[in-house]
Write a protein that binds this DNA or RNA. Structure first.
Length: 689
DNA sequence: GCGATCAGTT
DNA sequence: CACAACTGATCGC
């Protein structure tokens, strides 16, 4: 449950996912997805009144979220005041204070979050830096690296703060089987049951919340049976979901709900009330999606667990696992990361302790200075969370053979070109001072991820935990279901090696359907088995789009979906051709763009930006003009005490040394002549190519 | 009577 | 186990 209070330090005049208390004064509202715990205050009289008085206040969200929200009569009063923003479309919004007339411009980009239909993350760019609010998300490892709009010039943007979904940010949730794995397990269980007779039905015991739609659509697709649900009008404009649902109770797959459902089920009655068909009584099993996780990824574990005569639990998660969170955050590598959720059983401090080493300030940035032969020690003093010995080791021994750099699709040598922000008409003057405080230079280094890996491993074995789910009755599962502990201590380096390199991150991530015996793929379910198929296809995750005529919706991201080697009849084609989420980090940048990025002192917005006026009419505005900043960069950077823009991260600590002037000069010359000497000197770049 | 909050359930 | 949401009880306006 989110405990985010609605406001971000950098942009306190907007509120996200909270609409009560101080948020009542916000200049603009953002809703990441349609779950109640992110909608607090959204229909309260106080906010209603505010809307009536402040005619320029709008709620921004994805088109799907808007649709879902407005389906409920309780929120209908928002109708005229919601502006939906397309996914991955940078959009400028004017934040106007109606009392003072004061105005601030901000650019927001919605990124698919994989949590439920319409769910997005918000990337904000403005005078106080770039910040990312993740909302709730589930993204597989490597997905951040594939989000084009998180990048600029092939590098991840300079992000000041991330407001992060930390629901499972606890080593005990080290790994959660992928969507594809979970889906396959459920598909096979359902298949094994409903093929017995037309009177064999399954009941999916799902919560009353968005997020199961891709499960329904895949089941429907697979078996040609619509899924029975209580309500489907909210999907009336999302045909790709709608077509797989029905309110006709005669289907073999049910996801209907009733307050006394569990009780009904005891009596072989479905929540919708039926017990028989053609006067023949039904044979029913229940499958309850719930979150199960693995201690580490090589352990074979069932994604389906039998919990009773006719009851099963199926692995299913709306949220990223611990390792997925770490992968995400270490890739983004912000200056700050703030947890939106404090998982029960843990504390804010513990969560922060996990996040901190993945952020910039605690990174070992030493390699960056290597070319200069300076500052090594100065930097290491910043590593509060790193044991000294390990640090030594790293410096001396791990010079390069480590896999880490591969985690970043593109080496993060952004030192020499802090990305710039400003879209022309928006940013004006300001910010040298602001910039300083927000730290515009990226200190990302490969060491970064290295530490992350170490920590992963350590923490994962320190875990003790869960009890074993009841293994299914009579089945010869040779390996005990949950075994995290045993071999966790051995860092799974190879895993990190393989993942996220330049080619295709998703492939490593997903057990290929062809590698039969399935080294890593969990056993699908404990009961029938043997021929546990490895269907890794799944068309999707959580849609963020409303299809114009039906080709999208719930499909979209989830790379795992796309790589399914099994061509599924028809269904997949829709998800695959949906270009909405095909982010590829630009590896070959057009020369001009590269130039921009190299030269701009701040985050550059090289794309077109949509502008949403207070009237809600989006217009596209191109924001070019960064070229003239070349000179500026040189000037600024040569000035050693300017922290506002530099090719180097200037340590903030007083005792830290600055790079020597001659080294800086040398590098600038190279830069000016277009040589890539800086890159070549970094070990990560050697590894990366 | 509505809404907010809390505890308990699924 | 852990998701998100519903139910019911209680309190205040």
């Amino acid at each position: 449950m989110s405990s985010f209070q609605g406001q971000m330090a950098e942009y306190p005049s907007i509120s996200i996912d909270r609409f009560d208390r101080e948020n009542l004064r916000a200049r603009a509202y953002f809703l990441s997805h349609c779950h109640k715990d992110h909608m607090k205050g959204l229909r309260a009289p106080a906010l209603k009144r505010r809307l009536e008085c402040s005619l320029k206040v709008y709620l921004y969200c994805s088109p799907v979220t808007k649709e879902l929200l407005l389906t409920s009569p309780k929120y209908r009063f928002w109708e005229k005041r919601i502006i939906s923003i397309e996914i991955e479309t940078p959009t400028q919004i004017s934040l106007v204070d109606e009392a003072s007339g004061e105005k601030e411009e901000i650019v927001v980009t919605l990124l698919p979050a994989g949590h439920c239909p319409g769910s997005v993350m918000f990337l904000f760019q403005g005078d106080n830096g770039t910040v990312l609010y993740t909302g709730d998300f589930r993204l597989a490892k490597g997905e951040a690296a594939r989000m084009e709009l998180l990048h600029c010039g092939g590098r991840v943007k300079d992000i000041q703060s991330v407001y992060l979904d930390t629901t499972f940010c606890d080593p005990k949730f080290y790994q959660i089987p992928s969507r594809g794995e979970c889906l396959s397990g459920i598909l096979e269980l359902v298949r094994s049951w409903i093929t017995r007779s037309p009177y064999h039905v399954v009941w999916l015991n799902c919560k009353a919340a968005y997020g199961y739609e891709y499960l329904f659509t895949n089941l429907s697709e697979e078996f040609g049976l619509q899924v029975h649900v209580n309500k489907l009008d909210m999907f009336r404009n999302m045909p790709d979901i709608l077509h797989h649902l029905t309110t006709d109770r005669s289907t073999q797959i049910h996801a209907c709900r009733h307050p006394k459902a569990e009780e009904y089920f005891q009596w072989n009655k479905l929540p919708c009330g039926i017990t028989s068909k053609n006067r023949i009584s039904l044979h029913t099993i229940s499958i309850k999606p719930s979150t199960m996780w693995f201690g580490e990824r090589t352990r074979k574990t069932n994604v389906i667990v039998r919990t009773g005569e006719s009851s099963y639990r199926a692995c299913f998660s709306f949220h990223s696992s611990y390792s997925e969170i770490k992968d995400f955050l270490s890739y983004i590598c912000p200056v700050n990361a703030y947890p939106n959720v404090i998982p029960i059983g843990t504390t804010v401090d513990k969560v922060i302790e996990i996040l901190k080493p993945l952020c910039r300030s605690s990174q070992n940035t030493e390699p960056k200075y290597k070319p200069l032969g300076q500052l090594k020690r100065a930097r290491t003093t910043h590593l509060d969370s790193v044991p000294p010995e390990e640090e030594e080791e790293e410096n001396d021994l791990f010079d390069d053979p480590l896999p880490v750099p591969l985690r970043h699709k593109v080496p993060n040598q952004q030192t020499h070109h802090p990305e710039v922000f400003p879209m022309t008409e928006v940013s004006q003057n300001q910010p040298e001072n602001l910039r300083q405080s927000t730290g515009c230079i990226k200190a990302k280094s490969m060491k970064t991820s290295l530490w992350a890996n170490f920590i992963d491993c350590e923490e994962s074995n320190s875990e003790s935990e869960e009890e074993l789910p009841i293994p299914a009755s009579g089945q010869g599962d040779p390996s005990p279901p949950h075994q995290q502990k045993t071999d966790v201590e051995v860092p799974q380096w190879d895993v990190f090696f393989k993942r996220n390199d330049d080619t295709d991150c998703s492939l490593e991530n997903f057990p290929s359907s062809t590698e039969a015996g399935g080294s890593q793929s969990p056993k699908l379910f404990s009961d029938s088995d043997g021929e546990s198929t490895h269907i890794s296809s799944q068309n999707s995750s959580q849609s963020t789009h409303i299809s114009e005529q039906g080709s999208q919706g719930w499909d979209s991201q989830s790379d795992t979906v796309l790589l399914s080697s099994q061509e599924r009849n028809g269904g997949d084609s829709t998800s695959v051709n949906k270009g909405s989420y095909r982010p590829r980090v630009k590896e070959n940048l057009p020369g001009s763009q590269m130039e921009q990025n190299v030269l701009c002192p701040k985050d550059t917005y090289s794309e077109d930006v949509n502008v949403v006026s207070s009237a809600g009419e989006p217009t596209t505005v191109s924001s070019g003009k960064h070229i003239p900043q070349e000179r500026k960069l040189l000037t600024l950077s040569t000035n050693a005490d300017s922290q506002s823009s530099s090719d180097f991260e200037i340590p903030a600590t007083p005792e830290a040394e600055l790079p020597k002037q001659e080294h800086l000069q040398y590098l600038y010359e190279k830069l000016a002549t277009g040589e890539s000497i800086v890159l070549k000197k970094r070990k990560s770049s050697l590894l990366d190519t």
